[in-house]
């Protein structure tokens, strides 16, 4: 199992206002530290037009993190594909991977805030069509390892059918995670076990050797030896030793969901009363958080049958010193405790 860190959203929130420029310079420093201590990857997240400046342009942000490192992988967890022109994303992704030794992962999601679609002249009710059109573009000539962010079995099956990696977001319980992983693998199997882009030859980036994702018949001879597409799991996680430290970490986890309450509040037609449900959401998040010593966290993660865990540590409340310390501890204490036998090739 590989361990990454996330989500870097580059915000200046109501709970912890800061300079945006400082946020972006901190991203560079954090990427350097993550690489230095042996963390596998750093993941970014996207929203548009949100008051706290939630990062709206992940490709330049990723280019920054890739530019200051040599081994660290950098991913989007997730880029909102329906809000972008897929050809543009594909070209930029291919360019990043060519330039930075295939260290960029493109995670894609649909988005859920109507205002973000309106801001780009789009209608959110069209998002599934836009997402599928975008995924068609990406899988025709995969420019990088591709992941799809999901919150439902339908979406997990969609990713599995295409042979794409699964990026499971949020605070789902182990049972729900298991269900999503099972749906993903079953759909992949039913589709003829298509080879995923993470196993595409490096040449494919240039379009010289388009792989056969989504074409199970043509790829059949290879499929029997190809493992299923990888599964990544975003998990609220913190390394803490004393009871007081654990309580502090859990409070940071809880408070970070205020940001999501705000995002949901802005999404006025989701049918969910975010203000009324904030406490319930926080309880759910706390229950699924993995907080403790390195041994306890390693044990907690062992119950998930996934290839990559992205430790969600990019909260807005912890002081910089605490964030830097947990990055260091993840690299030096947690990474060595976890097997590197996952299906990620990098």
């Amino acid at each position: 199992m590989k361990i990454g860190i996330g989500l870097w959203c580059l915000q200046s929130t109501a709970t912890a206002p800061r300079s945006f420029t400082a946020a972006y310079q901190d991203l560079l420093d954090d990427a350097r530290l993550a690489e230095q201590v042996g963390v596998h990857s750093l993941w970014l997240s996207e929203h548009h037009g949100y008051h706290d400046g939630y990062c709206p342009a992940l490709l330049p942000a990723a280019a920054g993190a890739l530019s200051v490192t040599e081994r660290l992988e950098v991913g989007t967890g997730v880029l909102l594909l329906p809000l972008q022109r897929p050809e543009r994303v594909r070209t930029a992704t291919a360019d990043l991977n060519r330039r930075y030794g295939r260290r960029f992962h493109l995670g894609m999601g649909m988005g859920y805030r109507p205002g973000e679609f309106r801001a780009k002249g789009l209608d959110m009710t069209d998002r599934v069509r836009l997402m599928n059109r975008g995924l068609d573009k990406m899988t025709a000539e995969p420019p990088a390892p591709l992941w799809v962010g999901v919150t439902s079995e339908v979406a997990a099956r969609r990713a599995g059918r295409r042979g794409l990696g699964l990026f499971i977001s949020g605070a789902f319980s182990p049972t729900v995670v298991e269900t999503l992983v099972a749906a993903h693998r079953q759909a992949w199997h039913d589709a003829g076990e298509p080879a995923g882009p993470e196993r595409a030859a490096p040449d494919a980036i240039d379009g010289d050797a388009a792989p056969t994702a989504g074409q199970p018949t043509a790829a059949a001879p290879l499929m029997k030896t190809a493992p299923p597409p990888p599964v990544g799991l975003l998990r609220n996680l913190w390394l803490a030793d004393s009871a007081a430290e654990r309580r502090q970490a859990l409070d940071w986890v809880r408070s970070s969901y205020l940001v999501y309450a705000g995002l949901g509040w802005g999404a006025d037609d989701t049918g969910v009363d975010f203000a009324a449900q904030i406490e319930a959401s926080m309880d759910e998040v706390e229950a699924s958080a993995v907080v403790g010593s390195a041994d306890q966290v390693a044990e907690g993660l062992a119950e998930y049958d996934v290839d990559l865990v992205v430790a969600r540590i990019g909260y807005d409340q912890p002081p910089r010193s605490a964030l830097r310390q947990v990055i260091e501890r993840i690299g030096t204490e947690l990474v060595p405790r976890l097997s590197s036998s996952g299906r990620l090739t990098s």
């Binding site: 580059l10 945006f20 420029t21 946020a23 972006y24 310079q25 560079l28 548009h48 037009g49 990062c55 709206p56 342009a57 490709l59 330049p60 942000a61 920054g64 972008q84 022109r85 543009r88 801001a119 780009k120 002249g121």
Partner: peptide, 21 residues
């Protein structure tokens, strides 16, 4: 080209922070 002007403005803003003005 066919990109939304907001997309360009967002990328410029992020570059401006990464490059420190």
């Amino acid at each position: 080209g066919p990109d939304h002007p907001l997309t360009v403005a967002e990328e410029v803003a992020v570059l401006d922070h990464l490059s420190q003005r």
